[in-house]
């Protein structure tokens, strides 16, 4: 059996440190849990650097580290913290190459998670980074995807926002697109929604519908193959984008781009436009398979 995603990340980070490619920065890294088992048990002497709890300053310290031709990895335990961590990454690191001809490449590991954790820290917040030029946004959910993204970062000199999700850390399976043949409807899935998308497809196909699946790894720049575009364009009823963030951001922007390219209606489904509470009845979770199924059926009927 192949490695899980979390074992893969741990291995990548071990090599990153041992081969002295750069440091890893974050808060409370070396405590219990090692960030969901994604960090090797290494310490400051090895390059695993504990920042203080000054979140905004922390993003600046990592930015300064990246100016020194090292390639720092910045671990952000919950994506919601980015409202504090992001300012100097997006305003300095992402602009440094363009303004001062000085690359400042940071690998930001923003980790999503939700379910009973309240209104601020949970979910994915990759849309927060989306509007700033000069950085790339990716969301790997499989071991191979993560390796590819890391290799790409090491060859590149740009800022990467890597939108991870704890729900995928135990995954060992590579997720494939299904774009063969004429589809009734296509699901385009980002981050953790990719797993529910597969279940929704199975349910809908039992009902006799042909459902395509397109996985989005590269959010910015958006990478969707020509064959995938063709699949959406040839579909009967269009496509639905799934996300683990509010739809007013990445999903609606991608929907707009893809509808221009395909001349089809592209819909979106992500977090509801409300804060998340702790109790099940007031939580705000990414769309699950039955919600996806319901949405697609209603779209097709209308």
């Amino acid at each position: 059996m192949g490695k899980t995603l979390k074992e893969t990340i741990k291995e990548i980070i071990r090599k990153h440190l041992k081969n002295k490619k750069g440091k890893v920065f974050g808060q409370c890294l070396t405590a219990v849990g090692w960030v969901g088992g994604t960090l090797p048990e290494l310490y400051e002497k090895d390059g695993m650097i504990e920042l203080s709890m000054a979140d905004v300053a922390g993003g600046g310290i990592v930015t300064g580290s990246a100016l020194m031709k090292e390639k720092p990895i910045y671990v952000i335990r919950y994506q919601g913290f980015n409202w504090y961590n992001a300012p100097m990454i997006v305003n300095y690191a992402a602009k440094s190459k363009e303004i001062w001809n000085t690359p400042c490449p940071v690998f930001v590991r923003g980790i999503g998670m939700e379910g009973g954790i309240g209104p601020v820290a949970g979910s994915s917040h990759h849309s927060l980074y989306y509007r700033m030029p000069g950085l790339k946004i990716v969301s790997p959910m499989t071991p191979n995807e993560y390796k590819k993204i890391y290799d790409s970062f090491m060859k590149d000199n740009e800022v990467y926002y890597v939108s991870e999700h704890r729900g995928s850390f135990n995954n060992r399976i590579e997720l494939k697109n299904d774009i063969k043949g004429r589809k009734d409807f296509v699901i385009i899935a980002i981050s953790i929604t990719r797993f529910e998308a597969i279940k929704a497809k199975e349910i809908l196909e039992k009902k006799g519908l042909k459902i395509g699946i397109i996985n989005i790894l590269w959010i910015k720049p958006l990478k969707v193959s020509k064959a995938s575009i063709k699949c959406i364009a040839n579909s009967k009823f269009g496509a639905l984008i799934l996300d683990d963030d509010y739809v007013d951001g990445i999903s609606n922007s991608i929907a707009n781009k893809l509808s221009h390219l395909t001349n089809k209606k592209i819909f979106t489904l992500g977090l509801s436009d409300k804060s998340a509470g702790f109790h099940k009845r007031v939580d705000n979770l990414p769309p699950n398979s039955s919600q996806i199924v319901k949405k697609i059926i209603s779209l097709i009927r209308n």
Binding site: G58, G59, G60, I61, G64, E70
Partner: peptide
């Protein structure tokens, strides 16, 4: 580049954490 002076992004004070990160590394 000649004098190792790094640019400032215009947000006052950001040069402090950024300078510290550069020094630390």
């Amino acid at each position: 580049k000649k004098i190792n002076m790094f640019g400032h992004d215009g947000h006052m004070g950001t040069q402090v954490p950024i300078g510290i990160g550069a020094c630390f590394t």
